[in-house]
Design a protein around this nucleic acid. Sequence first.
DNA 1: CAAATATAATAGTATTACTATCAAAAATAA
DNA 2: TTATTTTTGATAGTAATACTATTATATTTG
Lengths: 225, 225
Amino acid sequence: MHNLITNIKIQISDKIFVKDPETSALGKKIIKESIILIDEIGFDNFTFKKLGERIGSNESSIYRYFENKHKLLVYLCSWYWSWIEYKMVFKLTNIDDPMERLKRAIVIVTEKIVDDERTEHVNERILNRIVIIEFTKTLYTKEVDEENKVGYFIIYKRLINRMVAIVNEINPDYPFAKSLISTIVKGSLHQHFLKEHLSTITDCNEQVSPTNFFMDLINTILIKE
Amino acid sequence: MHNLITNIKIQISDKIFVKDPETSALGKKIIKESIILIDEIGFDNFTFKKLGERIGSNESSIYRYFENKHKLLVYLCSWYWSWIEYKMVFKLTNIDDPMERLKRAIVIVTEKIVDDERTEHVNERILNRIVIIEFTKTLYTKEVDEENKVGYFIIYKRLINRMVAIVNEINPDYPFAKSLISTIVKGSLHQHFLKEHLSTITDCNEQVSPTNFFMDLINTILIKE
DNA sequence: CAAATATAATAGTATTACTATCAAAAATAA
DNA sequence: TTATTTTTGATAGTAATACTATTATATTTG
């Protein structure tokens, strides 16, 4: 079925960029290569100057798309969550049983990511690595409240609340649906991180995936009574 | 009982600092005031120069205690987790029932923090705010593997594994003890953050605490079968 | 083809993240 | 108490970062 759609366009709020990078060749190159460069050297060491050198373009040209590197990161993460949401909507269409819906949603949100060939200028496998390591940095800042007000995190919050609605369908009496889902979505990134870097405090490895863990978790919490 | 101990000393690995800040008046001032300043302006805006001005001391003097601000943050977080571990050991002595032990541990790790008067130069209430917002930044870097190898995160990992041991006592068949505890400890910080800044994706508020949520979680997972 | 727009090149500023050096002050040891 | 060692403070300096401004040159579009 996937083959029916040959390319997809992800919508990002225009408050995050100065000029929409999807509207030009240079813009797309900025997105494509920034993902690769951030993955390579880490967001802390990433600068627009280095990116400019990498894409054979000038620093000042990049500033015409993004005010600063923080906003570029917000953009990339929004893009990622939007893509996840897109996949989720697809996976849930025509599925009625709420428990089955939740399970599918959990899979989408916790599974290992492979590149989506329908998106020319974004490598989702690499972008996922960036989100695992850097997403927290978009939220945990002194400016979070203003940025939240302006809508920087709507896509992420919408995704969470989409899943919360399913939990409420399954068990309307469970009083922690929001905390449960926000813990799972964020916690899944963390388990993927621990698996790679701090393996002594996770059970996840080549055999056991974060999906296994969280699937067991919701099974216990929402079914067993 | 607490009153018996009038002051406590937290042990931090000497690999994190150049000179132990606990050994001098200036060192203690660096710790005390850096906590206040980071809380005020955020770690990203925090510099040794600003701290120097704040404490009437020179930038170069601070560099004699910490190589850079990242290591200072690692120090502060290690201090925090060590203090948490200390409180936990106390709260668990002479308690035999593992479920009761786990519950007490969960409370220690998820509850709202108030200042511990026994520590002269550290305000734990403020330090907790820093840990909530900045702790992730100590882990999620390009250097995490080397830093982990050198032992920057032992205290945190030891705390987690202490709790994992209790879970294994309660239910030796549960296959995700490590992931469960690492999710709870890290997730608790996140719920505290969401409560303050992204309230639409958490159930925690003035009435419902992260402790309530996670207590319910372990109750369901480890008791109900 | 003209006009508008986008990009590149260059230069410049304030701040950051340090390092090096030397003098002054404080602690300690003889 | 003096001499010595250690600690701290002051100053200066460097390379990199995170931008802004200006102007010239392409490129697109009408």
